[in-house]
Design a protein around this nucleic acid. Sequence first.
RNA 1: GCGCCUGUAGCUCAGGGGAUAGAGCAGCGGACUUCUAAUCCGCUUGUCGCAGGUUCGAUUCCUGUCAGGCGUACCA
Length: 569
Amino acid sequence: MDKLKEEIGRLLAPLVSLEPKEIINLLEVPPETSYGDLAFPCFSFAKNRKLAPPVIAKELSEKLVGTKGLYWEKIVSRGPYLNFYIAPRAYGCEVLRQIWESGEKYGHTNLGNGGNVTIDYSSPNIAKPFGIGHIRSTVIGHSLYLLYKALGYNSIGINHLGDWGTQFGKLIVAFKHWGEESKLVADPVNYLYQLYVQFHQRVEEEPALDDQARAWFKKLEEGDDEAVAYWIRFRQLSLDNYALTYDLLGIEFEYIHGESHYNDLLDTVIKLAQDKGIAKESDGALIVDLESHGLPPVMLRKKDGATLYITRDLAAAIYRKETFNFVRSLYVVGAEQLLHFQQLFKVLELLGFKWAADCVHVPFGLIRFKEGRMSTRAGKIILLDEVLQRSIEIAREIIEEKNPDLADKERAAQEVGLGAVRFGDLSNDRIKNIEFDWDKALDFSGETAAYIQYAHARICSILRKAEAEYEKWDDKAASILIMEEEIALVKTLALLPEKIIASAENYRPSILARYLIDVAREFNRFYHNCPVLGSEGELKHGRLLLIRATRQVIANGLGLLGIAAPEEM
RNA sequence: GCGCCUGUAGCUCAGGGGAUAGAGCAGCGGACUUCUAAUCCGCUUGUCGCAGGUUCGAUUCCUGUCAGGCGUACCA
């Protein structure tokens, strides 16, 4: 698509007194393919020319009548638009060649030029099992991690574990009062979670427990031996448990730096705020007043001297800048923390850090029950692991039914099962809340990962059957595709690079996910109307090149969503 | 109370200052002696929450309003 756009930019620039770049930005895809393949809208300069847009479009088309480009062959004005029709042979050949030559790098660019991008994602609160809610940050964050890498940035994944805070006071109190060693050993994370839920039940009748919990957290912050010993143990048990889920999802972090990692910096942060004169005492606590910025105050230190979440986040932000000198710093954290991040970035700015402008909160909506919110404290959650395992199980059953002779069923079941759950989360606009529904979470028909994966598997199947003589590039074969379905597929394949850029820059993997549905749909239409192995000679070769390119686009695209592209399923 | 987010077909959602608003699911009807039918084709469905405003043009931008969600200093 790029080369075509550049060509049109150069063609129109002298005629409309705009830079080629400006023209390229104006170009859009018409709503109907019968209108053409790329449209140049004539609204923007209608005013200065004092002419109606349709008149300008007509005038331009008359000037260009009879001309042809390398990648386009016809210009028609229609209303206020100047519409270009591609030259399918040359254009198809060019698109397929690019994909052929770039291979698994097709769609990748070097926009980032090696700059560091830190991505804070997943970040579970330890001593609690992974709930389905955690899939969001984990999967969106991981996809952004991969997308930024594809754009030539150096992605740095940081798992900002919730491994500090009053909750540990609660756990210590709970374990000391009614904990049982044998149960902890048997099923550590679930047992810790039970204790946590129990704590919140008992605190209703015994509010003093809350004070005890705060006191234990204070002791932890002061380095009390007993408190620290509990903390280390609970933390490690949790990490061991999470590792299983991360392995299953194929996720690795560059750093697992929990909140506790920044403890040594907390005093420095507080001192810095005091030196800058932005911190003040209020009711015995230390706060930063943000009223003049239209925000509620930020508390840096509680009246008992303990720090808060935001104190640790300030320290973490500064640490990340000093350690990685990031060009951008992403926080893939729920939308309920919007205010928190506004405050965080504002305080960083007030501390004099210009790079506060490079920090971005990437918010996402809640996963809820029909009846209301999920609540870890109340024990009302759905376990991520349960969803993943059930999804794999259903995929296994479908494979057993549809393809019982498949060699590695277990692997396919895993790839398809995990893909379904991931895609379900990635394919919709992240800001929207999701109502959890087992049937929807485990759906394999329609706009799902399986639809895309199936197209991939089908292509692989055809390629396995194709003769070796077609496994080479050939200009003539690549220029032979002129069927409507072939052209539509080629045009769709050409879009991968811009979709990757749009996904990363808007922090929206859903753009890529939706695009891959389009690719699979165009492939299916092609598949049903254009026999590949059943055709002959150059046409067969050309179609094999086309499906090879399609396979590459799907594999690259799914890869960036963290979803496997099975060769058989 | 105040702030932020969301409101599009029966359901779940794309889209987005412009050319007749799109998919999937559900429903009905078709297509496997042919490259895996987890597929494809056809049919049916809309006051784009409501009311104003800006504009040559608004479902898209602005204001108000209603509904739902989230947040609103000693949790994270």
